[in-house]
């Protein structure tokens, strides 16, 4: 991988955006964003609130469509693929991802049910072990879990679609330090052992430094900087400098 004119160039990016813009309620939320998320890496997507980061992830999962530009999933334009297959291939865990009514097992079964399949006992146990949750929680009411446990169930639920790309939106924002560490370890493990491409929105620059291999910095709907940690810290962009300085202080 190398860098050309501020853009990271990967021979086969997991997701590539080409001049993507998005507008809602007469406001430009994403403004001509071009760039890519390299395959098999963790990209930390950072930037101040209101920068359009969550909107960008929803665009990549196909929950919304750009008003301009193209999004390519593993080289294929998103509009040329069925929305259902895009969403199963590019999983998303939103900060607001709710637990559906019922047990943890019912929540895990959801993605399979949507395809007319059922979750076997073995699959349920294996999935719980995969995300580091005790299997005794399977019969618990999902809405009564702790914040960290809920986020793990959300990740597990998405993984049951066998997603090869995982988009994470501030999933550790409200967690205690030990839960935060567990989720970070889990995501790194998924990337290392299952070769899942991760795009992780975080407000926490320290966390981005710990887990991110590549960085996207968005400000005001624009992609202002991409690159390694060092490149972000050395950015000449005033807004990026202000953001990095503000977060670190």
């Amino acid at each position: 991988m190398n860098q050309e004119n501020g853009d990271i160039v990967s021979p086969s990016p997991a997701i590539r955006l080409d001049g993507v813009s998005y507008r809602a309620n007469h406001t430009d939320i994403i403004k001509k964003v071009s760039g890519q998320f390299p395959t098999g890496n963790i990209t930390a997507l950072i930037g101040p609130s209101g920068a359009g980061k969550t909107t960008l992830l929803k665009l990549c999962n196909g929950l919304i469509s750009p008003v301009q530009g193209g999004i390519y999933i593993e080289g294929k334009r998103i509009e040329e693929q069925s929305p259902l297959s895009v969403r199963r291939h590019v999983g998303i865990v939103l900060q607001s991802s709710p637990m559906i009514q019922g047990t943890v097992q019912a929540n895990l079964a959801l993605p399979l049910q949507l395809r007319g399949k059922t979750l076997s006992e073995e699959q349920a146990i294996a999935t719980m072990e995969r995300v580091g949750l005790p299997t005794s929680l399977l019969t618990r009411d999902a809405r009564e879990l702790s914040g960290g446990q809920k986020q793990k169930v959300s990740i597990a639920r998405t993984l049951l679609n066998e997603s090869k790309i995982l988009l994470l939106d501030e999933i550790t924002a409200s967690l205690d330090p030990s839960s935060l560490q567990e989720i970070e370890d889990l995501i790194v493990k998924l990337k290392d052992t299952e070769k899942i491409t991760i795009v992780w929105i975080t407000h926490n620059l320290e966390q981005a430094n710990r887990i991110g291999e590549y960085f996207w910095v968005m400000v005001d709907g624009q992609l202002r900087e991409v690159g390694t940690k060092e490149e972000i810290y050395a950015s000449e962009d005033e807004d990026v400098k202000r953001f990095v300085k503000g977060v670190l202080s």
Partner: peptide, 16 residues
């Protein structure tokens, strides 16, 4: 809305 978007994001149909 959150619940509907969750189901859609997991590959559910509009009806589901």
């Amino acid at each position: 809305r959150d619940e509907s978007e969750l189901i859609l994001s997991l590959g559910g149909t509009p009806k589901q």
